[in-house]
Design a protein around this nucleic acid. Structure first.
Length: 343
RNA sequence: UGCAUCUUGUCUUUAUC
């Protein structure tokens, strides 16, 4: 059974969901790991609805299944459901707590995160690292450093997190010091350093680092694409030269267009990205709303808003509502703006 | 008591101010 499970996990983990499903069907017997492997494959590569459906038909479940679902909600931006599941699930382990903490990291809810943290009877390296990043990403660099100093050991992940924390908060020198002191570097370390240079205005250094990096992935390319956003020609050239693109690449390029006032082009990129097989995400819609807002095209913006809710089944976040308020208000629909705020 | 398969941490994109 373990051998079968390993094969199943290989299919599911790498996104071959069709093969995984048929392999699952051909198995002589199943245990909770089999069901969970399929579930996590669907969560990683499929839709939330498919994951929920699979969860519904699972004949055995355990805490791992529930934790996976909790993470699925969080990844999909359904934080209310995540919180609800977390507070109603019959038992928790450190993975459940960490997953919920990470979810609060995404919403920027520092206070809620603190409550979870104080309720935990013990924590591990992941807990400390989640808190470190949560503080750093919300502008609390001192607290982030405090987490780094408080953790019982520092591993490659937490050290990289601290490095990124410095870089993201404008302390490039400190980030470089950590980078130079690291015994070995992962792709994430390289990307963090690359982004540090790019975001802090050192484009020349970023270009050099990009050339000499021993490994690169799409994140590295996207960082460099974003670094060129100030100049639409450069950005267009770089984008055109990319051998592969994902949703983030398209989002970055859309942002480059809006940044340079090319709102119509930004909106049309949305069609192109779909034709290339990249699905829009919540950030894509924020860019779209922004472009519509600056074009004064309320109808177009509202259409996209409805499409986001109906066609894509996304939850509108606070950011999306802010954009809609901006869209309506800029065009003088004050009454409708107030209605949207109130409702 | 110990070894294999499933869930949590670090990198890139977005609005307002």
């Amino acid at each position: 059974l373990v051998s079968w499970n390993i094969m199943l996990a290989a299919y599911a983990f790498n996104g071959h969901l069709k093969e995984a499903r048929s392999f699952f069907g051909s198995m002589p017997c199943w245990d909770v790991v089999s069901w969970n492997s399929m579930l996590s494959g669907i969560i990683k590569h499929g839709s939330l609805n498919d994951a929920l459906q699979w969860f519904g038909i699972m004949s055995v479940r355990n805490l791992v299944s529930t934790n996976a679902l909790l993470n699925a909600f969080s990844q999909a931006g359904h934080f209310a459901e995540a919180k609800n599941l977390y507070s109603t699930m019959p038992e928790h382990d450190i993975v459940s707590h960490n997953a919920m903490l990470a979810a609060y990291g995404h919403t920027g809810d520092v206070e809620e995160a603190r409550c979870v943290f104080y309720s935990m009877s013990y924590c591990d390296l992941a807990t400390w690292t989640i808190l470190l990043s949560l503080y750093a990403q919300n502008g609390h660099l001192v607290e982030a450093k405090c987490m780094f100093d408080s953790m019982p050991q520092q591993d490659i992940v937490s050290t990289t997190a601290m490095m990124a924390a410095y870089a993201q908060n404008g302390h490039l020198k400190d980030a470089v010091d950590i980078f130079n002191g690291m015994h070995y570097l992962t792709l994430v370390s390289w990307n963090s350093m690359l982004d540090g240079y790019a975001q802090n205005g050192y484009l020349k250094e970023a270009k050099i680092l990009f050339q000499i990096m021993p490994m690169r992935n799409l994140v590295s390319w996207n960082v460099m694409l974003a670094a060129h956003a100030g100049n639409l020609d450069d950005s267009t050239r770089f984008f055109g030269g990319m051998q592969a693109r994902d949703t983030v690449s398209w989002n970055v390029f859309m942002a480059a267009n809006t940044y340079n006032g090319h709102f119509v082009e930004a909106i049309s990129l949305h069609m192109e990205m779909k034709m290339e097989g990249c699905d829009p995400d919540d950030a894509t819609f924020i860019s779209l709303f922004f472009s519509c807002s600056h074009l004064g095209d309320v109808i177009c913006g509202l259409n996209y808003f409805v499409s986001m809710l109906i066609d894509y089944n996304f939850h509108a976040t606070k950011q999306h509502y802010h954009c809609m308020v901006d869209l309506l208000a800029r065009s003088g629909f004050l009454h409708e703006t107030c209605t949207m705020i109130e409702e």
